[in-house]
Simulated scan of single mutants.
Amino acid sequence: MIIAVAGVAGTLGGSLLTQRASERAKRREIELLRDHEEARENLLLRRTCYVELNRDARQFTTALNHHLHVMRERSVEETDREALDDAKRAHRDRYSEAQMIAPDEVLVRASEVNQALNKAYGQVKRLEREEPEPGETMATAVQTQAEIWNMLRAMRTVMRHNLGVAPKSDDEQIGLPTQMAEHRSRR
């Protein structure tokens, strides 16, 4: 009788232990799937943010360039001002979004681009009002705007690395410090 009870208890106990182990394995599998899905969603969110930030920063840079051309060729009209301000607003919105999503290594480059764009915008607007600060001319505004392209390349490279699209490049491969230093030495 004791042997039979022990045998039944062992059989039941073994099946309970097997069931618990199976449940734990299923829970771990579900957790892994959730973690994987969360990582995919995070990657998709960052990718979307980076694409939009890159696009809007480039469009703002292009709008600044266009505005400078307009200022040299004719008087600025309200539609020209609106186009520039629309590009500025779009970039501001994307940059604000990136501040909440992007890691620090990307934000450093995005911040450099944002500051450069705002500096160029300020110069352009002061020149448009014919109230430039000392040393501000059309030539310096064009130069400031042109330098932004290198910063955009550096930002894009860091974003691509963060997404796993491109291998990590050091600053020299990104091109910003070397090109900026060469450019400044030519002035």
Rank of each mutant, 00 (worst) to 15 (best):
I2Y: 10
V5K: 05
T11W: 03
S15V: 03
L16R: 07
L17C: 12
L17A: 15
L17M: 15
T18Y: 15
T18N: 13
A21C: 06
A21F: 12
A21M: 13
R27N: 09
R27P: 01
E29Y: 04
E29R: 09
I30V: 14
I30P: 01
R34I: 13
R34H: 14
R34Q: 14
H36S: 03
H36L: 02
E37S: 06
E38P: 00
R40Y: 00
R40P: 00
N42V: 00
L43F: 00
L45F: 00
R46V: 00
R47T: 03
T48K: 04
C49Q: 02
E52M: 10
R55N: 12
D56K: 06
D56G: 02
A57D: 08
R58E: 07
F60Y: 11
T61G: 13
T62I: 13
T62Q: 15
A63S: 14
L64W: 01
N65F: 03
H67G: 00
H67C: 00
L68I: 06
V70P: 04
M71I: 03
R74L: 11
R74A: 13
V76Y: 01
E82G: 04
L84G: 05
D85M: 13
A87C: 04
A87Y: 02
R89D: 09
A90W: 01
R92G: 06
E97D: 07
A98G: 08
I101Y: 05
P103V: 05
D104E: 15
V108I: 15
V108P: 04
R109D: 10
S111A: 11
N114M: 07
Q115F: 10
N118G: 12
K119L: 14
K119M: 09
A120I: 01
V124Q: 02
L127Y: 01
R129P: 01
E130T: 03
E130I: 01
P132D: 06
E133C: 05
P134C: 03
P134Q: 07
T137R: 02
T137P: 01
A139M: 07
A139E: 14
V142F: 05
V142D: 04
V142C: 02
Q143T: 08
T144M: 08
A146D: 10
E147L: 12
I148E: 06
I148H: 07
W149R: 10
W149V: 11
M151C: 08
M151T: 10
A154D: 14
A154Y: 03
A154S: 15
M155P: 05
V158M: 11
V158S: 05
M159V: 06
M159W: 05
L163V: 03
A166D: 14
K168S: 05
K168W: 06
K168H: 06
S169K: 12
E172P: 01
E172C: 05
L176M: 04
P177Q: 02
T178N: 08
M180G: 00
A181Q: 11
R184H: 13
S185D: 09
R187C: 04
